[in-house]
Every structure is written in C-alpha cells, then in structure tokens.
C-alpha cells in the first residue's frame, strides 16, 4: 500500500469505535459507543448538553483515554496520539485554539504549521476571503467576534482539505456555534467537499446539516446509562 502510484482513487479508510466507555469518578459519561465511519462519510453526534459529545470527540482524537473499548483505524486498534493518528486527526474544539495576541492570519498560519502544512500567501488570502475575513485578517484575535473566531477555524479546514491524506479525519466540536447563516452554509459546503474527496468527519452539532453524502447519526442520549 505504499505510494506506488498504481491507484489514483482516494484510499478507503474506516474509523470504528468498539464499545467505548468513559467514566469520570463514579459517573459514567458514555458506555457502549460503537460505530463505523468510512471514507466519504460523516458521523453526526447528537445529544443534550452534557451528554458527552465533547468527551467522545476527545476520545476519538486520542486526547482522552477510554476506560474500555478501542478506536480502530482500518481494523487495527489505534494507540492514542500515535504518529499515524496525529497525522490523520484534525480536532477543532469548542475553544477556538486562537492566540489573542496574534492576528487572524497569523493564527491561521500557526495552526497550519502545527498541522505540518504550509500554504502560500495567495492560498491563505483566498481561504480568508472565502470565510469572509479578508478585511479583518490583520486584526488581533482578541478583537474578533465569536463568529469570526469560528471562521478562522473554517479557513484552517479549507486549507487542510487540499492536503489529503494528511489530517483527513475531522473531529469537530460544535463547529457551527456562533456562526451566522452564511457561515453555516459555508461550513456545509466545506464538509460536503471534504466528504466528496474521500475525507471523514465526526461532527457534534445541534443543527440539521444538509449533506448529500451518507451520514450516520449517533445519539448519546439514547445510550443506556448506569
């Protein structure tokens, strides 16, 4: 499967969770979470506030260790934060991971370089224009509104999309929070394109996104609790 150049079509991957359980103290956050997502598919995580969507996304990212169960990539158990996992997973948390003292554009460039990516100046400007931040690109992140901070994250996704298979598994925590209508439709298009390219996404959201690609739903409220 090394890059011999024989195959042009995007590689098919599967991400699977196998009986994931997470406890905090004596409280069970979630238990028995199992699902499979393939390339080009999205998994929508549903559930009330506090139902464990963020914890599950962090577990899928490898940041939190499950108390039972495993996350599998192409059928093999993933070691949390192993190199191939870090290469595949892009996590966008509910905090925006922006530095207040850096401008929108600087934050974007820094986030990309941490992801191991580079984008040319025109590509950066293009992405910032698409998310509507071109005029505000030199403004410090502390002066951006919540929605604009979210849009910096969208610009990062936009540029990451071109870097497949690097960071092709998107783990997004409430990505549409604070976004206005145009932001949400921008995000929907972004996800659709990503899935069309053979990417994968797990999205915690309360919105009904109109995606053409096949989506699975996982409702954390419906899980049996003890």
């Amino acid at each position: 499967m090394m890059a011999s150049g024989a195959s042009v079509s995007p590689a098919i991957h599967t991400l699977a969770a196998n009986g994931l359980r997470l406890e905090r103290g004596s409280r069970s956050i979630f238990d028995g979470v199992s699902f499979t997502v393939g390339s080009g598919q999205a998994l929508m995580l549903r559930g009330a506030n506090g139902s464990g969507k963020t914890s599950l996304l962090r577990t899928l990212a490898g940041l939190t260790l499950p108390d039972a169960g495993a996350v599998m990539w192409d059928g093999a158990v993933l070691k949390p934060l192993a190199a191939e996992w870090r290469g595949a997973a892009l996590y966008l948390g509910h905090t925006n991971a922006l530095k207040d003292d850096l401008s929108a554009q600087e934050n974007l460039v820094d986030a990309l370089s941490i992801d191991g990516m580079e984008a040319s100046q025109p590509a950066q400007l293009d992405a910032l224009e698409k998310v509507g931040l071109l005029e505000r690109r030199l403004v410090l992140a502390r002066r951006l509104s919540q929605g604009q901070k979210r849009r910096v994250g969208l610009a990062r996704l936009l540029l990451a999309r071109a870097q497949m298979p690097l960071k092709s598994l998107w783990l997004l925590d409430e990505p549409t929070n604070a976004l206005d209508e145009s932001g949400v439709s921008l995000f929907t298009r972004l996800i659709s394109d990503h899935l069309d390219n053979g990417g994968m996404a797990c999205i915690a959201t309360h919105l009904e996104l109109k995606l053409a690609a096949p989506t699975n739903e996982l409702n954390l409220d419906a899980l049996v609790r003890n």
Binding site: R58, A61, R86, T95, A97, D100, I114
Partner: peptide, 16 residues
C-alpha cells in the same frame, strides 16, 4: 491550555 492550543500541539504531526 486555556485557549485550546495545547490540544492542537498534542495532536500535531510533530512529536510532542
């Protein structure tokens, strides 16, 4: 840690 960039560093392609 407070602004979430530590998560990004932990998930960076570069070794922590």
């Amino acid at each position: 840690y407070a602004d979430g960039t530590l998560d990004q560093l932990a998930l960076s392609v570069y070794p922590l």
